[in-house]
Nucleic acid binder design. Structure first.
Lengths: 330, 330
DNA sequence: TTGTATGCGTTATCAG
DNA sequence: CTGATAACGCATACAA
């Protein structure tokens, strides 16, 4: 592997000059530039990033931590992050944790080791002190999630969105409405639960049925099995994720229930699968791509030392009505 | 940010000694160890990876390039790679290219800059010379893909799998069978196409109907629209990806066709969505997790300089029969 | 405009 | 067992 010394030797100049040509900084004549470029070409030279970044004390790389790469919900978010990063000359590396704290630590270590300049935690389920610890290591942005602490974050108003989803079911005439919640350690699970409860309360509905899942399809199936035994059985369901909603629909159909006639269902996220399931799923749409863009913009702003704007950025959501909730189909 | 010098000063030893304690190599008394550890603790010291890796000329990091993070097919593969990497003390970073050559170059650059030790290219669509160029930069393993060149690779026998999928439709009595192929620049698209054609040939069927998509749901819909106008219309379809198969089913149903009665469908990959769509999709199952494990094992073997075993590793596949193809449901 | 020399943070070699 | 020192590859302050 050729180094800058080899290039310098072949071009008959000093390493400083090669470096100047390489970075574009510092002065040099067109002629030396030519000589250097020729040597680079001949040697097929590629600067060693470790050396360069050690010297510059920055890598122009950010790490994005995802709890579960299986979840298609994140695809668009990542795309937004990558587009924004690329536009600013940053490289994105993805870290998948499988909801495993140990693995997250692995990626935080990359930040500690200064192999990345900043980190974005997506829909993370860490307690606040842990996030604060990460914040001491380097710049952090939370995506799809906010926390009561002083963290930069980008998300929708989960409580309000859940309120609207539940209210929609109430407007369609339902009185017994169940909720499949996300894991309680995730802040946004609580937010969605509270939105559901507020909708019931404001419409004078006392009865509630809440089960806790982990956002997965399988947990939706499992909760549905339990729900089937409720007596009287709820006529509607608001699930905190599309996957749980879809799991519920599959399981309900398996047991001979008609969706939406016997059970109206609303999900959350609008993943691709939501349009594939039969019937297509009514759900909350998040501006996924935009969340990614905003989160990355925030992080880069911090990295460039500019004063950062709003601490918590709230983006707008919508309810897309498909056939799984009955009433007037689109 | 504390450095090794700060630790050395506080502990009253040399940096060499700190390093010895840190790496566990070299001799030191329990007492110096204690002093060093205390200083590390107090200063909240974390070794700088750039310095360390520059010195050691290795990062124990591998980069995995994916063409499309949206594709759930890769989820399990990545999980296998990560588990295997972790077990050997390696860190995996993911690079998403969105099928964009420019972006892939971005990640290859990480290898060039020596910020990763090796690279795995997943279901890549590069022409062979390009892969050879990458191979000159550092160790490469191809996953879900093989190429005629001398590349380490892990995949199933795509041609044979496609042959079996198509043969299954023929056994069910179909004579007019369409194929939705993947992009022609992807080697495995050709393999699957050839398997389809071999099945027709071996069963004495002359007529074929082939459309080229890009593995996406949308392209499946688009090809189905064209297929609907064929006269006489094929009674069965073998798609080179589950997403295309599902797109075709949705579109067929939209136009009043019954699946599998009017159109029998077989897909490829067995993504989660395959069980969600109505009717559930008959498809080729790849040992996704195992492909990931094998690919990573290969790369690590190369990195550790051990002689590598088989160049091309072929893993077994199966055909899982669900309801989308008619005949005898499972 | 160019070269010399230094330091980024670490580890390994070599003396002691 | 420990310390001084060189080296990894590069960028930059300073001198020429």
């Amino acid at each position: 592997m050729a180094t800058i010394k080899d290039v310098a030797r072949m071009a008959g100049v000093s390493t400083a000059t090669v470096s100047r040509v390489l970075t574009g900084n510092g002065p040099f004549t067109p002629d030396t530039r030519r000589k250097v470029m020729e040597a680079i070409e001949k040697l097929n030279y590629q600067p060693n990033g470790l050396g360069r970044y050690l010297r510059k004390q920055e890598t122009r790389t950010v790490i994005v931590v995802l709890p579960d790469i299986t979840n298609p919900f994140f695809s668009q978010i990542i795309r937004g992050m990558e587009d924004e990063a690329l536009a600013h000359g940053f490289t994105v590396i993805l870290g998948n944790t499988d909801n495993h704290a140990d693995r997250q630590r692995n990626y935080v270590k990359l930040l500690e080791e200064r192999r990345a300049d900043g980190i974005i935690l997506t829909a993370v389920r860490n307690p606040q002190p842990e996030i604060e610890a990460i914040q001491k290591i380097g710049p952090v942005v939370l995506a799809c999630e906010y926390s009561s602490g002083m963290f930069q974050s980008v998300a929708i108003d989960n409580e309000q969105a859940a309120f609207e989803a539940t209210s929609h079911l109430i407007r369609l005439g339902h009185k017994r409405i169940a909720h499949f919640a996300g894991p309680s350690e995730v802040v946004l699970s609580g937010d969605r639960l509270h939105g559901y409860q507020r909708a019931l309360r404001e419409h004078g509905i006392a009865e509630q049925w809440v089960g806790e899942g982990d956002f997965s399809l399988e947990s939706g199936r499992r909760l549905m099995q339990k729900l089937l035994q409720a007596n009287p059985r709820p006529t509607a369901l608001f699930a905190a994720s599309d996957k749980m909603a879809i799991g519920a629909i599959l399981e309900a159909k398996l047991h001979g229930l008609k969706v939406p006639d016997d059970l109206a269902v609303v999900g959350f996220d609008d993943i691709e699968m939501a349009e594939v399931v039969d019937p297509p799923l009514t759900t909350i749409v998040q501006p996924k791509y935009q969340i990614g863009v905003e989160a990355m913009r925030k992080l880069i702003t911090m990295l460039e030392g500019r004063p950062d704007p709003a601490l918590q950025t709230i983006l707008p959501h919508t309810l897309v009505i498909r056939r799984s909730c009955g009433g007037r189909p689109e």
